[in-house]
Write a protein that binds this DNA or RNA. Structure first.
Length: 585
DNA sequence: TGCGGCTATTG
DNA sequence: CACAATAGCCGCAG
């Protein structure tokens, strides 16, 4: 029931037992609104954050937040929530796509047409708002949409509005719950929704905590590859020119080629008698002996990349004076719902990994999932023979035996099947896969067929993978077919990659929760790898905890065990290391 | 200035 | 050189 702002926050929260949803809004000025089924309260600074932190510890509600930005505002004040319901994260699970504004979330959840979404009309000379009728006082329009002014920031203009914004968040979460209940497997989708929400909390923390990185080591690696730090712009130009000259001195005298232009590099290679379809490194590698220019060019490429993407600019922009590499994290980017990160956190060259060093008195516990995608395929398809093969530490060994081929061929074939390869060695072994694992292969092929004709897919965990409409413009039959085939490969892979991402994230947030008592912090999530930063004294306990979390999550996640059948086995290689580059073990 | 293509890096 | 991602630079259209 609506009681308006001013209800005592403590008494509201006292009545909330662990589990129920509690709307939570943080205004730019630090005021906090809390909404339960019993009413709404607004807490003004300076006690607002402390009140939330205490409620999180003592009552343990599942906080409904509009998006990761609420979590970020709280983390900035030192408040790390245990449980959340992130409306954007759940919206992406339910509907796919990348919408994140509250107006769209609200409309989609209420089944309102989004092409009639209210737009914020900036006031101008000819369209003065009528002060007599303050229509914007209400958050919801007559048609049931969220008013654009509110979405655009008017929600924060008064205590009453902040309170209303928290109440609306709670309303929307309850609406999302009913939508989840209509999905094919509501129980599993609910677990996904909760994990995806917790991932947003983790993302907010990853962005603030950063990855420990030794600036001195990083600088020396960059210096070795790209030269000294330029003193000024002229020096930078001189270094670039010198780098270019090392290649161009192998070119015909007087010629002018821009090494940064692939077309001109192709021309340059032609001048020395080398004809290539493109100038990618793997192609040029074979021609390294043919001309000193090719070798010089490949060396140049390495140095140029280090100088541009991971050079001093990168160091200055993303590595703080406290020795932390920080980027922005997304809990479910891309259609399949993997985590993504900026600042090179997900594609840091192996060359730079020696710079990722635990702070003194700490170590990293590094955990790598083994062969996650074929194991996930076994789980989501329920193929009994493939499930049986997951009992092995290296599941490609039994797969090779089943197929009557060597291990390398079995691995290429399995990856080819999951990626949609139709040519080469993998394609030949495909028939063997279809014979040995008909259920798994049909799972992939039916996903492929659906995606080809533009039918949306839903992952094992319930995420909608939107396929978009086929482009039927004036293109040739051949082009249309190749686009359809590409959609098919995308869809087939999204079902495996997406489910793997869901399992990984449940693992990551379980480690986050369980790590608190050990001062163990997740500092990097890398699709199938977790890096946990922990005090020396707790290293052993943390390593055991990470393993236990995986077994727990896998047990809950893989359904066949629950049904009394054989279970899919998941394994993780755990190492306790001082530096990310250190050998495993 | 925005966008597609090419290239390199990672899982 | 299949599936996914971020990121930088070039060349071209507007």
């Amino acid at each position: 029931m609506w009681q308006g702002a001013g209800v005592d926050a403590a008494s509201l929260l006292d009545r909330a037992t662990p589990g129920p949803l509690v709307g939570l809004v943080v205004a730019p000025d630090g005021a906090v609104a809390i909404a339960t089924g019993d009413g709404v309260a607004v807490i003004e600074p300076p006690n607002a954050f402390e009140t939330v932190a205490r409620a999180d510890r003592e009552t343990g509600p599942r906080w409904v937040i509009w998006s990761q930005s609420t979590a970020s505002a709280l983390v900035a004040e030192g408040v790390r929530l245990a449980r959340a319901w992130d409306l954007v994260a759940v919206h992406r699970l339910l509907f796919g796509g990348w919408e994140s504004d509250p107006g769209s979330l609200w409309a989609r959840a209420q089944d309102l047409p989004t092409d009639r979404l209210p737009v914020d009309r900036a006031p101008n000379l000819f369209d003065q708002p009528d002060p007599a009728e303050d229509a914007s006082a209400l958050a919801v329009t007559e048609a049931g949409y969220l008013r654009a002014e509110w979405v655009g920031g008017a929600w924060a203009e008064s205590s009453e509005r902040i309170a209303e914004w928290a109440r609306l968040a709670l309303d929307l979460a309850q609406r999302q719950l009913t939508l989840i209940d209509r999905l094919p497997n509501p129980t599993r989708a609910l677990a996904t929704a909760r994990a995806e929400s917790a991932v947003e909390l983790l993302c907010a923390e990853l962005a603030v905590d950063g990855l420990p990185l030794d600036r001195t080591i990083a600088t020396s690696i960059i210096e070795a590859a790209a030269g000294p730090r330029p003193r000024d712009e002229a020096h930078a130009v001189a270094i670039r020119a010198a780098r270019d000259e090392a290649v161009l001195r192998h070119a015909p005298p007087g010629s002018h080629f821009d090494l940064r232009s692939p077309a001109q590099v192709k021309s340059l290679l032609r001048r020395v008698g080398i004809e290539v379809a493109d100038t990618r490194a793997w192609r040029l590698e074979a021609l390294r002996e043919d001309s000193p220019l090719v070798d010089a060019l490949l060396v140049w490429r390495k140095a140029e990349r280090m100088a541009t993407t991971y050079g001093y600019g990168w160091l200055d922009e993303h590595v703080g004076s406290d020795g932390r590499l920080r980027g922005a994290w997304s809990g479910a980017d891309g259609a399949a719902g993997r985590m993504t990160a900026t600042a090179g956190l997900h594609n840091l060259p192996a060359e730079l990994r020696p710079a990722v060093v635990a702070v003194p008195g700490h170590v990293f516990v590094r955990a790598d999932l083994g062969q996650i995608e074929p194991r996930v395929l076994a789980a989501v398809s329920g193929d009994p023979a493939l499930i049986a093969s997951t009992a092995a530490d290296d599941m490609y060994v039994p797969v090779a035996r089943d197929l009557g081929v060597d291990r390398a061929t079995a691995k290429v074939a399995m990856l080819g099947a999951m990626y949609g390869q139709t040519t080469g060695r993998g394609a030949q072994a495909l028939r063997g896969l279809q014979r040995s694992y008909p259920v798994a292969m049909e799972y992939l092929e039916s996903s492929d067929r659906a995606a080809q004709v533009g039918t949306d897919l839903r992952t094992f965990g319930g995420r909608l993978v939107r396929m978009g409409v086929a482009n039927a413009n004036a293109t040739s039959e051949r082009v249309l077919r190749s686009h359809a085939a590409a959609r098919g490969r995308f869809g087939r892979n999204a079902m495996v990659q997406g489910a793997a991402a869901e399992l990984f994230k449940q693992w990551a947030v379980t480690v986050r929760a369980r790590g608190e008592l050990l001062d163990a912090r997740v500092v990097l999530c890398l699709h199938d790898e977790l890096l946990v930063h922990v005090p020396d004294a707790n290293a052993e306990a943390a390593a055991a905890m990470v393993t236990e979390c995986l077994q727990e999550v896998a047990h809950r996640w893989a359904p066949h065990q629950a049904a009394g059948g054989p279970s899919v086995r998941f394994t993780a290689e755990i190492s306790t290391i001082g530096c990310w580059a250190d050998a495993k073990g």
